[in-house]
Amino acid sequence: MPSQPIIARQAPEAPAAAPAKRRSMLPHEHGAWGQLAMPLLTALAIARPGAAAWLLTAAVVLAFVAHEPLLIVLGQRGRRAVAEDGARARRWLAALGALTAATGLAGIALAPPAARLALLLPAALAVVVGVLVWRRLEKTVAGEITVAAALASAGYAVALAAGAEHPAALAALLAWILAFGAATLAVQVILVRVRSKGAADPGRRHAVLAGLLAVAAVALSAAGLPGALALATLPTALFSIVVCLVRVSPKRLRELGWALVGSSAVTLVILVVGLR
């Protein structure tokens, strides 16, 4: 009998490995986006922004976006990030640095003297934040509040560049610093509770501190700054006090995050209505 042809059975090819997802060069901290956006929106809404204010806003946002590539280049995201994405991060950093310089210098040239002087505050705070990042202290309570103050301070210069009166710009700045400070206290309480599994709880201490921030806002308004400062700080301060004193399940962290966004939105509305 003729031999039957033998058909070789080939093993099925292994599926090709999916390409590794490229690391995003945008800042990963969602809260920081809000800490930047809310004060800038306030600054633009309480005045009539022109070219100077918009250019300074663009420079601030570009500098913020450059934060993530800078962390990679400095090795703050780990050795693997440097090895895999260091070259790309350096390209991003160079491009963002050039755009920040171009928009920033143009905005400074067009801005009034008061706005130029106000830029010294975010510049000084940026140096402090850089030191905290270098020493890996930016995630402490003091570090988080300093970062929030640095982000909020950019809105101060933008508001003045947009033509806002100095008391209004200063009230907006202080309201956001105090509100973000109160929010940071609440978030830190939740993190400590989760990490220690309830063994540590700074809730009462942080509730007192949040209360003192609210008192400071009231005192500043009583001293002559617009009343919107006190009213705008209260929603987030009260929210922080509740979170600090009530043990919230870790399963409800998403709801707490949205509640914090809501309190910030209320602060924004109060400031715009009260300071415009």
Rank of each mutant, 00 (worst) to 15 (best):
P2C: 08
I6L: 13
I7H: 12
A14R: 13
A16M: 14
R22P: 02
M25N: 06
A32N: 10
W33L: 01
P39D: 02
L41I: 08
L44Y: 08
I46Y: 07
R48Y: 07
G50T: 08
A51E: 00
A59W: 02
F64S: 01
A66V: 06
L71N: 01
I72A: 00
I72K: 00
G75C: 02
G78E: 02
A83C: 03
R88V: 14
R88E: 15
R88S: 13
R91F: 07
R91W: 13
A101D: 11
T103M: 09
A106R: 11
L119I: 07
P122E: 03
P122K: 02
A123Q: 05
A123S: 13
L125W: 04
L125M: 09
L132S: 00
L137P: 00
K139H: 04
I145G: 00
A150M: 15
L151K: 06
L151R: 04
G155N: 09
A157F: 08
A162F: 05
A162C: 09
A164I: 11
H166M: 11
H166L: 15
A171G: 07
L174P: 03
I177K: 01
I177N: 02
L185H: 03
I190L: 08
L191C: 00
R195I: 01
K197D: 15
D201E: 06
P202I: 01
R204I: 02
R205V: 08
A207L: 11
A207K: 09
V208C: 10
V215A: 15
L225D: 13
A232Q: 09
P235G: 05
T236N: 05
C244F: 06
R252F: 08
R254P: 00
L256H: 06
G262A: 13
S264D: 09
V266D: 04
L268M: 13
V273S: 05
G274M: 03
R276D: 02
